[in-house]
Design a protein around this nucleic acid. Structure first.
Lengths: 192, 192
DNA sequence: AAAGAGCATTGATCTAAATCAATGCTTTTA
DNA sequence: TAAAAGCATTGATTTAGATCAATGCTCTTT
């Protein structure tokens, strides 16, 4: 059940069996069905969710009821409204399941206690957030300096597994394009 | 000389005099004149720089020689090409000084040794990168869901000190706009 | 099996911002 | 102090992508 989670953890910081068992006492499992919310805008985000199986997305909704997807999470990825989680402020994002999914949850109190008592967990957290920061920076850079076509090519190259499992209009949203525009971009690409 | 740096450090993790003295042995000071490079694309980024005084920017240059500013750093901020710093790959960004500046530098070896020997330094690093991640996410969200006008208003509200010290065309670049467009945006705003 | 929702595609039109171009500052540099 | 570089502004034109609208297809749900 926790296999992927501990695989991911061990790839960042080497843990003994005892340490793994100890961490396990802080975790909970959750199954969530397709279309169900893990978090709704306005609620406080209580957990960091690691995806063992399935797929989720985080998105905001603007004044015109348009959805803006800011993140996908497949197996092996983590998803949360980190700002809400850390500050306790109401979430500005929704998170829901794109497929029936299995999650490993870390509550705020578990997270804080592990940070304070287990240096390796802090290292794990630091490495995770560093990776997330770098990914976000790359994304921001590409938004500013590339055309829609280049960005789509980059996306496909970087996340082929997402492209295969997620509807196109959501990928369009993630890339900041309308579904119509992405459709035309794809047509242009395929005709070359 | 290190006053701002330790002020910043202490605001995140409480340190004794001894701990501060210890950390100080890992730091170096550097003065850099306006227009000088701290880092050039293609070189490996060797340091994380904390700005004690002055102002710097990080930017990339695209195929058409257009500059894309990705970050400003004034007093109290940190600047680096973190990807290059961490991986040792050639930098994809340039960093130069917008004003004569004074920096506190942390080398890679200093950074690694402090991370491994001083838990508080790791906590400091984790909190810093978390803040940077959240700021970046906010920026990405605003690029996707707001008009140029809203984004400029947000920028001014969030970073009034930058707006005062940095030329407009650089702010335009930071926001992903041309100088002409920013000029017109400002005109529109001021006439309301 | 029928009805409906969700989705991708294509066409026509519109619009925000980019591009090209010129002008008059102000600040550097020689 | 003259020349040049850097900068902000304004105008005219172009363009990438958005918006509006319609169609057919494929899943769900009943």
């Amino acid at each position: 059940m926790y296999t992927l989670f501990f695989q991911h953890l061990n790839s960042k910081v080497q843990l003994t069996e005892e340490e793994q068992a100890h961490i396990k006492t802080y975790l909970t499992l959750k199954k969530i069905r397709k279309k169900q919310y893990l978090l709704q805008e306005g609620d406080v985000c209580k957990v960091i969710a690691f995806v063992e199986k399935g797929a989720l997305r985080a998105y905001s909704v603007d004044d015109n009821s348009n959805e803006h997807i800011i993140q996908f999470a497949l197996e092996g990825w983590t998803i949360s409204d980190l700002y809400s989680f850390l500050t306790g402020d109401p979430a500005t994002y929704n998170i829901d399941a794109l497929e029936d999914s299995e999650l490993v949850l870390i509550s705020k109190s578990a997270h804080e206690e592990l940070l304070q008592t287990m240096p390796k967990y802090e290292t794990f957290t630091r490495l995770n957030i560093t990776g997330a920061y770098l990914a976000m920076q790359r994304r921001l850079t590409s938004i500013k300096s590339s055309t829609a076509e280049e960005r789509y090519q980059d996306f496909i190259a970087l996340y082929p597994h997402i492209a295969q499992r997620v509807p196109q209009h959501m990928i369009a949203s993630y890339m900041g394009l309308t579904p119509e525009t992405l459709s035309r971009v794809r047509k242009r690409i395929s005709s070359k």
